[in-house]
Design a protein around this nucleic acid. Sequence first.
DNA 1: AAATTTATTGAACAATTGTATAATTAATTA
DNA 2: TAATTAATTATACAATTGTTCAATAAATTT
Lengths: 251, 251
Amino acid sequence: MTQDMDGLENEINLETAFDATPPTPRKRTARKPGRPKGKSSDETRERILDAAERLFADEGYDGAALRDVAAAADVQLHAVGYHFGPKDTLFETVISRRSVVMTELRMKALNSAQVAAGDGLIPIEKLVRDYISPFVLSAGEGDSGWRTYAALMGRLANSPLGTEIIARHYDACARAYLVEFQRALPSVAKADVIEGFSAMVAAMLGLCADTGRPARLGQTDQKRRSTAESLETLVRFQTAGFNALTGSSGP
Amino acid sequence: MTQDMDGLENEINLETAFDATPPTPRKRTARKPGRPKGKSSDETRERILDAAERLFADEGYDGAALRDVAAAADVQLHAVGYHFGPKDTLFETVISRRSVVMTELRMKALNSAQVAAGDGLIPIEKLVRDYISPFVLSAGEGDSGWRTYAALMGRLANSPLGTEIIARHYDACARAYLVEFQRALPSVAKADVIEGFSAMVAAMLGLCADTGRPARLGQTDQKRRSTAESLETLVRFQTAGFNALTGSSGP
DNA sequence: AAATTTATTGAACAATTGTATAATTAATTA
DNA sequence: TAATTAATTATACAATTGTTCAATAAATTT
């Protein structure tokens, strides 16, 4: 919401606080039909995407009802369909809105690293860090939308629908990194490099999905770790994992 | 299915082959109402659980319709509710049926390792292997039900519902292992040990969920790796990850 | 042998869901 | 300024869903 409640020239209902139980119907603001005065539809689109992102993350693709998305975005049901078409393309749009940002961050980092390395190799730790940190930092320190997106991606990770969508939005970048991982680990079998990469991604998603399991397993309800600490631990762990693959089965 | 199609004393329809598109309605066998002759209801229960397991794995909790479960199990809709009550308790039963097996395997391995270690420490690699291998081997070499179950667990991993259920069924065992991990890594902060453990579990689930992403990322459609190979790579990778956490921030 | 319990089929219900149609009003274009 | 397009509310629909009720027949108990 870039420019909040402007152009709402009707009586407005200020219960914008977030409901803990998302399927709640949530009475909507009373508004007149017809094109609203002065407000760009882009705001509405973003509001719908934000609401959809959260509901897909909380309830899953099938669990999230378009009515609840509409209510959370404070628009009428049909506005959702009008802007984004059927449910699956809304979902696709939710994913791609941030995947393009994430992929650009990762590819820029990779390109810089390639330039810096020249003919040499990119260190494993740098590859791990460059792939992981945009996601971890966005999820941990970005706005709440990024946190929600990270939860959604984590949830998607091992589902058939999610796999298909991740392939479409993230595989190209993953392959670019894999080339460098393989180059930096010439003695490691390709299948092992890929398995390591998959392990790294799974750990990253699990960390960022932020399910609360670590806190539960630790019991001692210590204050939440800083994102930076978690990131460093993850980088060290995954880097060592990749390096341990050398000298096992030939390439 | 321990004792297949016995007691089906009515005309039977042999299209038992698995449908690639699970939401297909699937016409059921015509049978008389009333208690069937001679067949134990345990068979029916297992058939329903198998069908539910697969549909939950393929379609998710909300995506799986009880009607489709019933059709896949070749029973009437109400038989599902009769045996397992509402949908959420059916789901719970699907999870617990195998979680008790898995937890017993892991706890037996842990107890053996503790006895073998006596007053000494259990090596990290042994802890990793003992926790991971029952799941990986069941998913990779067990019957098809275990493969389905692994996909379901992977899918559950980062969802709110899944987290809650995993806590109920797997946290006790996870804590028992964590004690030994911490003992074996005395210089590592507790939060780091937990983060490493979470990374290990995430990688394990990602591997066993078997989404096909590794094959897609590798492109060269090589024959599927053996489960044993994957397991060894995973153990080596995760063990090195844990060991790399030593000597960073104090406990 | 009668009564009860168990396991099953068949049918129905009320609620929810994704999508489509109609109406309305502001912005844009001709 | 008239006509068209864009964005929105309001309503309707047909399909699907989890659950429940009724009927039936075999097994078990009394």
